[in-house]
Amino acid sequence: MPPRIPVATRARGSHALVRVCLLSAALAPIASRAADLSFKLEPGVAVPLTAPQSTVYGLGGGQSLKALLGLNGWLDVGPSAQFMLLPNRTANAESGVVWGLGGGLRLHRPHDRQSFAGVSPWLDADVLYVRTGQLNRLGFDAAVGASFPIGESRTFWVGPFVRYLQVIQPNRDGFDNRDAKLLTLGVSFEVGTGVERAREPGEVRTVSVDRDVVSCPDRDGDTVPDSIDHCPDRNGPLDNWGCPAYQKIVVKRDKLELKEKLYFAWDEAKLVDASFPVLDEVVQALKDNPGFKVQVEGHTDSSGGDDHNQTLSEKRAEAVVDYLVSHGISKDRLISKGFSSSVPTDTNKTAEGRENNRRVEFVVNFIILDKEDSK
């Protein structure tokens, strides 16, 4: 069986690949959000709701055009333009024309959601500068609708909408000063930058760097490339190095950090029951990370003699190793070492500081497993 090789002997080219894959994995979501720009067209039937417009004009046509910049998955902002043409009920009279320019925001279900066929309900509102005939007035609108994706890339969206427009009429002597209220019902058409579909486990993502294409395999499909994934066969977030999120420990680049202390009988190397839930998660983390070789380090405070503290720290580290081995972790992946009080993390002048210095740490050394070893 080929010997296990320390990670420090990897070629520099391998480190470069790790950096490229990590950078691409970390920046891909940011880049996709930064480029989330879409354009929306809303043709529909315009209906005047209140007098005097409802008595003068009949059903007409309306059109809205919007440019939307995504601030995040839920919220877009951007400018908008509107046009309406309402035929006059009298053949010899002029038709009603409405122009509007302004901007607003849209709240919607993120376009990358997979459930309910990807349908994205939305709600938007605009503040508008409105011109009708020779009058310039302030107005606002609000709309609700639902968009359905067309195609796997989700570049095109279509769906029904209802838009309410109110034009504010300032008081003028000799004129009807009621606000104009109109409704538009239609179908919206949206084209955007698209949404990256979810990748299947085992699919390979390629990243172009200086005209060289680097392949970043991702066996478990968690978007963390295998070259930096500490758990390449288990799903996990990037900030946990691709490993599952544990409750009582944190998987770091150089160690397993315990969120809770390990407890021993007073001045003995005997683990007490309160330590078992934490150690059980350490066991699971080591099973999830077959490339870890762990040095279990025992530390004491400065109370007592140096020889006693050294022996106690060594025996406590050995007790932890024995627990891990008894729960299925291979002995050749574990090393125990006692440091007495030589590596304090806090002051030994206070009771709290001494308590912090009495601890067990799990320092991680990486191993490259040969294909035959990993079977």
Rank of each mutant, 00 (worst) to 15 (best):
R12K: 07
H15N: 08
V18M: 14
V18N: 05
V20P: 00
L22F: 08
S24C: 05
A26E: 15
A26T: 08
A28T: 12
A31H: 08
R33M: 07
A34F: 05
A35C: 02
A35L: 10
F39V: 15
P43S: 03
V45N: 00
A46G: 06
V47D: 04
T50N: 12
Q53N: 13
G58A: 12
L59G: 08
L59Q: 05
L68E: 15
W74I: 02
Q82P: 00
L85F: 06
A91L: 07
N92Q: 10
S95G: 12
G96Q: 05
G103D: 13
L107N: 11
H108S: 14
H111C: 05
D112N: 15
S115H: 12
F116C: 10
F116G: 03
G118M: 15
V119Y: 10
P121H: 11
D126G: 09
L128H: 09
V130S: 09
T132F: 06
G133W: 04
L135I: 03
N136T: 09
R137E: 10
G139Y: 05
F140N: 05
A142W: 11
A143V: 00
E152C: 06
E152T: 13
E152W: 00
T155D: 05
F156D: 03
W157A: 03
W157V: 10
G159D: 01
R163H: 14
I168P: 04
Q169W: 01
D173Q: 12
D173E: 13
F175M: 12
A180I: 06
K181M: 11
K181G: 10
T184F: 03
E190I: 08
T193Y: 00
G194M: 03
R197S: 15
R197N: 13
R199T: 13
V204H: 09
R205P: 07
V207W: 13
V209K: 13
D210T: 07
C216A: 12
D222E: 09
D226F: 13
H230V: 04
H230F: 15
C231I: 03
P232D: 08
R234M: 07
N235M: 13
C243M: 07
C243P: 02
V251W: 01
L256A: 06
K261C: 01
L262Y: 02
Y263D: 14
D267M: 02
E268A: 04
A269K: 00
D273C: 00
A274S: 10
D280T: 00
E281A: 03
L286N: 04
D288V: 01
P290I: 06
G291S: 10
V294Y: 01
D301C: 12
G304D: 15
D306N: 12
N309D: 11
S313N: 11
S313H: 08
V320L: 07
V321A: 11
Y323D: 06
D332R: 10
D332Y: 09
L334G: 08
I335M: 10
S336T: 11
K337M: 11
S340Y: 07
V343H: 13
T345G: 12
T347M: 10
N348M: 04
A351V: 11
E355I: 00
E355L: 06
E355C: 00
N356Y: 05
R358A: 06
R359H: 02
R359E: 04
V360S: 06
I368N: 14
K371M: 05
K375A: 12
